[in-house]
Design a protein around this nucleic acid. Structure first.
Lengths: 126, 126, 126, 126
DNA sequence: GTGGTCTAGACCACA
DNA sequence: GTGGTCTAGACCACA
């Protein structure tokens, strides 16, 4: 469900938060659905519970998640609607920008970049 | 030459270092070519000189750059050769991975991702 | 500047945050003024730096404070204006409610409550 | 009888316990009188029964309440006497302290604080 | 110097 | 069982 890369330079709690909003926007985590518990995620990814907690707190503050005492976090009724295709594309802008910048600085042609995407897309599929 | 995004979550010094190695790998910064001075870059990007210094020191330690007293940093003779297409593609793997992960979590189709790349590629061209 | 009571049942980070917004609303901490550093406050109140940090993060998220890398936190230009008397009175509603509830449950007369306030007001003055 | 504010930051069980001791001190709950059952209170305030239970257990441990098998909790004969006016005033010290601190940090005048108390006192009366 | 991130681990409040 | 608060302390990024 979540893919954390400690070496990427991006804080773990932020990776978690970003990925959660994507799963909500895609409809994979519909309003009312529950998220893994803090401890569960912490164990699975060998990460400190407080790191998970921080991500959840951030998502709650931004209206994506709801907290109910003693119960697992749930996707908020309001904040967590399935986003339109256009909105979802907008959420992709940053990683695309990063990729285009890198490709150009490396002087890699667009078709080669697309080739690489093709490969990875298939590769992860299986 | 360099594009720094303070809000991206990636440390500034790391953005600088990554971008430098790409420009070297692509042949845009051939062996012996000089880099902007610390002060120059610091001013241009409104960043503390020590941040630039740190990136340069890191690149020197890794053999990409050479430091000669009183002169600007230069691309190392050995470390800094133009990389083969294959090697350059490999340097793209991380940003591609990030993008593919984001696209899948957003449930965006591959062709839409490629469409977005097309747009950004053209857009930045002008 | 801040008065923290660990035994009060109210989380320390919340006491800090509440008191900060009051000092901002009263004009004692005008826009642009700097707050004590995390470490300074942590030492002074014998509290963990992360607790202070959490309060500051919360206040930043709510627009009261601004963070500038490597510099102390400052009161936000927009969020941090001196509040009108009416607004400040509203911020007092919760503690007043608590007091009135307690007084009634204790069957203490209003004039005795006011007497107690008089005493404490003077007492702390000196 | 009890007023629970989940958002106040003060633990529910503690609000309950504090309010009970006040009602005992004021003579409203004389020795031997019975308290609402755990279930009753839990339903009325939409709170988990264990939370009520915890408050009652705490009050029993402190000698305020007595538990008799199969019967509702009762106010203890010894612990639960009507307190003198002076003692009751002392129980008000904490909320008064909180209020005075808040008022000063907000730079609100004493007479305005008293005005607010007047309002709330009347308002809740009806 | 500044604040930020993360860990390991204790203990609390609530369901 | 759930999440929250706090500590002690290491190490990082940036000015």
């Amino acid at each position: 469900m979540f893919v954390l890369k400690p070496q990427s330079g991006i804080p773990l709690y932020r990776q978690l938060a970003d990925q959660t909003t994507r799963l909500i926007a895609s409809g994979r985590l519909p309003p009312g659905s529950t998220l893994p518990s803090v401890r569960e995620l912490a164990l699975e990814h060998a990460v400190n519970p407080m790191t998970i907690s921080k991500a959840y707190a951030l998502l709650e503050a931004d209206g994506w998640l709801e907290r109910h005492r003693g119960k697992p976090m749930t996707v908020a009724a309001r904040g967590g609607r399935h986003a339109s295709g256009r909105r979802r594309l907008r959420q992709l802008e940053q990683p695309v920008e990063q990729l285009v910048l890198a490709a150009r600085q490396l002087d890699v042609e667009k078709r080669d970049v697309i080739g690489l995407i093709d490969e990875m897309w298939e590769g992860d599929d299986e």
